[in-house]
Design a protein around this nucleic acid. Structure first.
Lengths: 218, 218
DNA sequence: AATGAACGATACTGGTCAGTATCATTTCAT
DNA sequence: ATGAAATGATACTGACCAGTATCGTTCATT
């Protein structure tokens, strides 16, 4: 390991020639993301990635600086995909309960999807070795979810006539944790994922709780 | 790997002679627990465990059947320690709010302690390879916490005069998730652990929420 | 005390893997 | 077209490790 600092910044000192190599590197990153997410950092060898994606280790060392660089690049790409269903959930014109139900359901379905669970597992295991990825995951995950909930709650609760505005950030956090906490835990540690009924029940309970906590308004 | 099934059951087919070996195996298990918890299954080699604990690999293969057996034994031992402060929390004579506050605080302090975080990280990573450990962790962790909360809530709420008994299991689960959800996530993914003030605030918010959800009684 | 089983130290085996080197082939700018 | 840089295939190096074998030492029973 001659110069880890230089390697981690890496990505080729000279100018990028172009062409085929570009495509190879993207293929490598995609394949690596899939393998790393499902089997963790130590569970995947560079030779395996190269064999599945084509190209050669030369690319990995030239463009990503090594295994760690490829891992970071691959995981960062995978991060943004996980919560897409939640960020795209449409709550236009929905009331408080209906909108929260839809958002909560989108969250739980996203978190319990096999790719999200695999990514979560891998990140928990490697957050110590790659602190930057841990922070990125929190930002792209819980922080984003809570922001979406908070924005929705603000819109719906501000419209209420007399009552005072409750602490929307807090409500959003509580809602997030009530919806996801237990089912997510169980999905991580038990083989069978929670079924339809359990998901619906968890969301309904959280929605009712928020209604009660949001105060007596309307 | 001649016979994995036989090895996993293992623990020496013939009778246990006694003496020194017993002590060595316990030392091996303790040291292995410490190392496995902090660095994961793949991050620790048997040679390292043996070097730190004394004895030799002979013991590991004779009594634990191999690395996997030692890992399971070591982690199972570590599991029971984590929630001890919560199971021992004394809520005798405390009112609803004071008791919940004490329990919630015990939970968050237990979960955010470095050993608990390390154990959680390791288990999340290996729950796929060792499903039995995953289930054991859920049982010894969230399930136990929720049972303690439910028992306390039952005692306190049953005493209320007129109001109907709310769903105590549900309340216990929500309380657990509201207390632990976000801070635990952040502790897993960000370097700095939540401070005193944040812990107290999270517990207080959860206690207030439960008070509101438990119904108007008294 | 003697003896046979349990134990400890050590080294070996077969395999894996990250990272590097080599060299043939392809690509692109000129 | 052509040659220099980029890329691909392959193999090598040094290190690590799980699991096994060996053999001398220690212990518990008698």
């Amino acid at each position: 390991m001659p110069d880890a600092a230089a390697r981690s910044t890496a990505r080729r000192s000279s100018s990028r020639r172009t062409g085929r190599g570009q495509a190879t590197c993207e293929r490598l990153r995609r394949v690596a993301a899939c393998l790393f997410v499902s089997r963790g950092y130590d569970g995947v060898s560079l030779d395996e990635i190269v064999q599945a994606a084509g190209g050669s280790k030369t690319n990995i060392y030239a463009f990503y600086g090594g295994k760690e660089g490829l891992f970071v690049a691959a995981i960062e790409e995978a991060l943004s995909e996980v919560l897409r269903p939640l960020t795209e959930a449409d709550t236009q014109g929905q009331g408080l309960e209906a909108g929260l139900t839809r958002l909560g359901r989108a969250l739980i379905d996203a978190l319990l999807s096999p790719p999200a669970l695999a990514l979560h597992r891998t990140l928990v295991g490697e957050a110590g070795r790659f602190p930057r990825l841990g922070a990125a995951w929190y930002a792209a995950g819980p922080a984003t979810s809570q922001a979406i909930f908070a924005a929705f709650l603000t819109r719906r609760l501000a419209a209420r006539p007399g009552s005072a505005m409750p602490d929307v950030q807090l409500l959003a956090r509580l809602f997030h944790d009530m919806v996801a906490g237990d089912l997510h835990h169980r999905a991580l540690f038990e083989p069978e994922p929670a079924g339809e009924a359990e998901r619906a029940a968890a969301v309904a309970a959280a929605v009712q709780a928020v209604r009660a906590l949001a105060g007596p308004g309307r």
